[in-house]
Computed example of a mutant assay.
Amino acid sequence: MARRGHHVGVNDTDPPLPAGTPLPPDELGHRLTEVFDLVGPLYRRALRKVEQGEAVEGASVGVRSVLDLLCRKGDLTVPQLSRIQALSRQFVQRMVNDAAAHGWVEVLPNPAHQRSSLIRITEEGRTLIATVLDREHSLNREVGGDLTDAEVRACVRVLREMLRTFDHVDVDD
């Protein structure tokens, strides 16, 4: 049997630490590796599922992300969209151009910055993203495991902390 903190034996079958006890850094590192090992395949499978809907709605995964952000946060610039999504400005610009070509967004002058236009979602874009999100919601409702609100909140908290660890990574390099 592996010792606690030794990466070979660290998993959900190890006896838990007392509630509220933070994990030692070495053990935390190994446990979060388990999370990364699950998040990667989950993300790729979810992207494939969203891409299957592209044939119906016509929006790629990248355009879907842009429309969702604009719907939730309001008008944004390409650099802002890029930072929020941790994607290169060039990629986000291509997604904005694609969305604009379909009439899902409009490009407006930015009074705060002449060189960085504001991107605004159109009514057609709002209708499209609502359709996409409804389809995704239907899929997410199928998740099993009798998950509790506390478990989902804990998951979101963990993922948010993991994401914060990489805030300094420049995606345009």
Rank of each mutant, 00 (worst) to 15 (best):
M1S: 12
A2M: 03
H6F: 11
G9Y: 01
G9T: 01
G9H: 01
G9K: 02
G9R: 02
G9V: 00
N11F: 03
D12P: 00
T13P: 00
T13M: 07
T13N: 08
D14A: 10
P15A: 11
G20T: 03
T21Y: 01
P22L: 05
L23N: 06
P25W: 03
P25N: 02
H30M: 06
H30N: 09
H30Q: 10
L32Q: 15
F36Q: 11
R45D: 12
A46Q: 11
A46T: 13
L47A: 11
V50E: 06
E51K: 10
G53D: 10
E54H: 08
E54Y: 01
G58W: 02
S60D: 05
G62N: 07
R64G: 02
L67G: 01
L69A: 05
R72Y: 05
K73H: 15
G74F: 06
D75T: 11
L76Q: 13
L76K: 10
V78C: 05
L81T: 13
S82Y: 06
L87P: 02
L87N: 14
Q90H: 11
V92E: 03
M95W: 01
D98K: 13
A101Q: 13
A101K: 14
G103P: 03
W104S: 03
W104T: 01
E106G: 07
V107H: 04
V107M: 11
L108Y: 02
P109L: 01
P111E: 04
H113I: 00
S117D: 06
L118N: 06
R120D: 05
I121Y: 04
R126G: 09
T127F: 02
T127Y: 03
L128Q: 07
A130T: 15
V132N: 05
V132G: 05
V132A: 10
D134A: 15
R135D: 13
V143Y: 10
V143N: 07
G144T: 10
G144E: 12
G145V: 04
G145K: 08
D146I: 00
D149N: 04
E151N: 07
V152H: 03
V152K: 10
R153K: 10
A154F: 02
C155K: 05
C155W: 09
R157A: 15
L159I: 12
R160G: 04
E161I: 00
R164H: 08
H168T: 08
D170Y: 06
D170Q: 11
D172T: 07
D173K: 13
